[in-house]
Design a protein around this nucleic acid. Structure first.
Length: 485
RNA sequence: GGCGACGUAGCCAAGUGGUAAGGCAGGGCUCUGCAAAAGCCCCAUUCGGCAGUUCGAAUCUGCCCGUCGCCUCCA
């Protein structure tokens, strides 16, 4: 059974078939960095990262393009508000987004085109649309004539008449029909602008950059590319408008064979959204939770489903991740002493592949991975470990050094010595600046207290250590410690 | 109002015709000076409601109720 994907365009699950054998072209609508990225963005890009990993794993040569809409009304507004240039706003937020993606293990796109780097191609596209009667020049900009494109509404399953009933013309817009949308906005004083002879200086409207850039980078012949992705909130109007802009100029539509949309993330049962203001910046969430746990949480829900984010669910994902790491470590230990050759593709790989072939059922894939990790039998351990590592990498939860390190081997908080002095306040810590030395001294003190059955002092020291981020666990062979976050 | 998605235990969630995965939380036990960790066990006669199709339904059909999304900037 080949890969099956839900295609928004046909509203059906269909077998995935690339246009050219062995090659897959993907265009995903990226970020508009006019504000901080949030977890909802992460969910979407995390999904496309896994899709890309899987296609690559399946032997395709994948070209993944994810654009940056680096010019829009909100970044201009934010720049005015803060008294800086829009470029600073956009670069700042985008750099933060990139750092967050890196922490989440999202691989860099093959190409990250900026809208402002494609102004010539955007102008060309607009000129072509004007020449064919799909666009017209108005007093404040150049607009797309929606009524001219008969398939308008096909992607989002809407009809123009109904849309018009609910649409409104903004006060200073001079467009012919309410549904018409801006391809180019003439610059008002103080706004960033690019030349466009003979029409007038200005900036591209939202939507047009994706038509121009996907054409330039993935589909120069105008015969379409394989997969176009984005969040479900982009289906209308953004993707509908992209199609309207692109397809009249193509030699052979459709613009993209497969349209894939990631389900939205709710927070407090409301859509996580810049405009609603109900979100925590992604970089802050990543400080609070292990990025791999966030990834694992998202894997447990179908990519296209609406998902509600809660701290409770997050705690569950962290617990699952910890167990997975422990199981992995145990399996690694067993496999190290076990002999047996590792062959390509085995039972686990086959199960994971079957799961992902089923419209990227990451929940089922994860289930297989967790079950395999939990099997600590020596028989076939090396094989299982190898497959497990591959499957985890496929899902983007890559086992790194931390997975194999004993908890005690992890780095200590840099301010541990000072923290211990503050919490314990006993003279034997004076002058010890080294974190490890201070920790070892404190543990030795506690062991002495335990040996003397001074349980009160023993518990006091254990509590103090915990407040400093060190958890002690007493076993038969003495105490082991680990760093808690 | 139009279009769409969803409603499974306290929470998250898988399962889409064959008799309810898993995790978290909660409870019990073992271990322990006490904890923690770990291990074992328990925790939905039932899948929003009501009809219907079927030998059989959480899964299919119809109606109803509820939540959310898109229809305006949004991943």
């Amino acid at each position: 059974m080949p890969l099956q994907l839900y295609n928004t365009r046909t509203r059906r699950v269909e077998p995935f078939q690339p246009r050219r054998d062995g090659r897959v072209s993907i265009y995903v609508c990226g970020l508009t960095p006019s504000a901080q990225a949030h977890l909802g963005h992460a969910r979407s890009f995390l999904f496309f990262d896994i899709l890309r990993r899987y296609l690559t794993f399946s032997g395709y040569e994948v070209t993944y393009v994810q654009n940056v809409t680096d010019i829009d009304d909100r970044s201009i507004a934010a720049a005015h508000r803060l008294g800086v240039s829009w470029r600073e706003i956009v670069d700042g937020y985008y750099a933060e987004f990139k750092r967050s993606m890196q922490r989440l293990g999202v691989r860099e796109p093959d190409k990250e085109p900026y809208a402002t780097e494609f102004i010539p191609q955007i102008r060309e596209t607009i000129v072509a649309l004007i020449e064919r009667g799909y666009a017209y020049v108005a007093s404040d900009g150049i607009y797309y004539r929606v009524g001219k494109f008969e398939r308008y509404g096909a992607l989002s399953n809407r009809n123009i008449a109904e849309l018009e009933a609910g649409a409104r013309i903004e006060i200073d817009e001079a467009k012919e029909e309410p549904l018409d949308f801006a391809l180019w906005k003439f610059a008002k004083p103080g706004e960033p602008h690019w030349p466009f002879e003979p029409y007038g200086d200005g900036r591209p409207g939202w939507h047009i950059e994706c038509s121009a850039m996907s054409h330039a980078l993935l589909d120069p012949e105008g015969t379409g590319f394989d997969i176009h992705g984005g969040g479900a909130d982009l289906i209308f109007p953004h993707h509908e408008n992209e199609i309207a802009q692109s397809e009249p100029l193509m030699a052979r539509p459709p613009m993209a064979n497969f349209w894939l949309h990631g389900g939205l993330l709710l927070f407090d049962n409301r859509k996580m959204s810049k405009s609603l203001g109900n979100f925590e910046p992604l970089c802050d969430v990543l400080d609070r939770y292990d990025p791999q746990a966030i990834r694992l949480l998202f894997l447990r829900t179908g990519y296209g489903k609406v998902m509600n984010f809660t701290d409770e669910a997050m705690a569950g994902a962290e617990a699952t991740l910890e167990r997975l790491r422990r199981d992995y470590r145990a399996l690694h230990a067993v496999a190290g002493s076990a002999n047996g050759s590792v062959r390509e593709g085995g039972a686990l790989t086959a199960r994971v592949v079957a799961a992902l072939d089923d419209d990227m059922n990451t929940a089922a894939a994860l289930r297989e991975v967790l079950a395999a990790a939990g099997n600590a039998e020596a028989e076939g351990a090396a094989q299982r470990l190898a497959e497990l590592r591959n499957a985890l990498t496929l899902l983007g939860i890559e086992p790194d050094e931390r997975w194999l390190a004993e908890p005690e081997a992890l780095p200590l908080p840099s301010d541990l010595a000072a923290a211990l002095r503050r919490e314990i306040g006993e003279p034997w810590l004076d002058g010890i600046e080294d974190a490890r030395a201070a920790l070892e001294r404190a543990i030795a003190e506690r062991l002495a207290a335990r040996a003397g059955k001074d349980w009160a002092r023993s518990d006091r020291l254990r509590d103090a250590l915990l407040r400093c981020g060190i958890e002690l666990q007493d076993g038969k062979e003495g105490s082991v410690w680990s760093v808690v976050r």
